[in-house]
Amino acid sequence: MKHITGLLKPDAGEIFFEDKDITQFSRKKLFKMRMNFGMLFQASALFDSMSVGENVALPLKKHSGKDDDEIQEIVLDKLRLVGLAGIYDKFPAELSGGMKKRVGLARAVVMDPQVVLYDEPTTGLDPIMADVINELIKSLQKELSITSVVVTHDIGSALKIADHVAMLYGGKIIFEGSPRETQETENEIVRQFIEGRAEGPIKAV
């Protein structure tokens, strides 16, 4: 994910976004490209010196040129989208893990990006909250028509939200297919992972 957005530079190889190789981009061009991206970090990565409202508003304040009233309107709108309209003035330290994730999500979509990247969106959440996030990812994708890329080890979540599943093992993509194909595959490695068995081709210990 950090390669897709140019946060890290690969040792070898190329990465294409809209037919342009981003590994050759200057910082300026990368910044411009990242305006089309939103990212939800595993630990939310909210700026803890700022309130929730300021967190979500920061990208708009820096890049949109809109005035404060308009920005507040958009921020409240996005917070409503993730079901958290009432916490505008709270600070990240006062929020639960699930709420932080949702605020992170609001911040990720506040610039109306084309692509949103999710880094382990359901990790560390209880099953109900995990499902709330799953539903949010699905509805955001439909309502704002964005491309979603989700990295997860939560099979239930992956099968629920994905149109297309790829499994990465040992640095290579060893399987690609629809959720249905994933469930029905004969691939031993994939089978072991979705069934969550300790024995099999993947040696954990």
Partner: peptide
């Protein structure tokens, strides 16, 4: 806590 990365991400 990846806040620096998050800052880079919002350009």
């Amino acid at each position: 806590t990846e806040q620096i990365d998050a800052m880079e991400m919002i350009a």
